[in-house]
Design a protein around this nucleic acid. Structure first.
Length: 287
DNA sequence: CGTTGAACCTGTTTGC
DNA sequence: TGCAAACAGGTTCAAC
């Protein structure tokens, strides 16, 4: 579910409500996917949410201790950020505190306005962590470029000399941050590049087409509120609409929107990869 | 470096 | 119908 456009959609929804709110108490369910639940319980109550940000596929709540009169950590205590990764099935939503919990709700953060920020995640592939500035920096520092905030020149540089298959590179968060299986396939379809092409064999023209395709696909998807394949909903519970615009992902056996050939699905980099065998020519086999 | 497969965990869909 | 296998938006680690 959650790739860059879905996470951005969630963040935008949270941003309309959370900044300025104080976390008054928390309740945790299963905690095996959290870095350190005890730290959450000890330090989260009493924090005020200053800002909501997205970094790649991570949601970031910037916090400041609400016990101090002016919000500045004048006592020299650490500033914390709550880091949330939605994994495959994670969901953040804002609900009235009195509303019954949905199944698989593993964290409830009660706010000072009577609402709760709730984290739900059936598979528990997500991540929840309360991190100091330093710890946060070391997590985010491993990530690559944000495709929407990157120049063509920098994008090129990231691909230069890489022999890996282009699909593997697009999914690698230390190269680009935010793409996942859906948007990698959609971008490659748009750029007419086969997922198993080795990056170093792409012509400069193709690299720039890929760059533009990624940005177009991601910004269109953000505009439509992300893709809802089976269960993605935004912070208010509404589904996205970009799944109606998918051209490759999930369309195995159906006609290519450009040429009519049947979309195929193969395994590349260990992931299902959907592509048009006519528009996206297979790389010449090295012998 | 790059690739592959397994692992983490639960729910849904597909196939015999 | 029923049950097992396959599959799912992600990431990490070991082994080669």
């Amino acid at each position: 579910m959650p790739e860059l456009p879905e996470v951005e959609t969630v963040v935008r929804g949270l941003r309309t409500v959370l900044p300025g709110r104080r976390i008054v108490s928390i309740r945790l369910g299963k905690t095996d996917f959290m870095d350190d639940p005890a730290i959450l319980e000890r330090h989260l109550p009493g924090q005020r949410i200053e800002a909501v940000e997205r970094y790649g596929k991570f949601v970031l709540l910037r916090l400041v201790s609400a016990t101090k009169a002016h919000g500045l950590q004048s006592d020299g205590r650490q500033r914390y950020s709550l880091l949330v990764h939605l994994g495959m099935t994670g969901n953040l939503s804002l609900r009235p505190a009195a509303e019954p919990l949905r199944p698989h709700t593993h964290a409830c953060f009660a706010l000072d306005d009577g609402r709760e920020l709730r984290y739900t995640d059936p598979r528990r592939f997500g991540r929840v962590a309360l991190l100091s500035e330093d710890a946060l920096g070391s997590v985010l520092g491993k990530l690559g470029l944000d495709p929407l905030e990157t120049s063509l020149a920098d994008f090129r540089q990231r691909f230069a000399g890489r022999r890996a298959m282009v699909k593997a590179l697009l999914l690698n968060q230390s190269v680009l941050r935010g793409l996942g299986n859906i948007y990698a396939d959609e971008s490659l379809w748009r750029a007419r590049i086969h997922p198993a092409r080795h990056a170093s064999t792409l012509a400069p023209r193709q690299v720039s087409l890929l760059y533009r395709s990624i940005r177009r696909v991601l910004s269109d998807a953000i505009r439509l509120g992300g893709s809802s394949i089976s269960d993605f909903v935004d912070a208010g519970g509404l589904p996205g609409e970009f799944q109606l615009r998918h051209r490759a992902y999930g369309r195995e056996g159906k006609g290519c929107f450009r040429c009519g050939a049947r979309i195929r699905r193969i395994l590349v980099a260990g992931r299902s990869s959907h592509f048009c065998p006519r528009c996206q020519r297979a790389p010449r086999r090295k012998h």
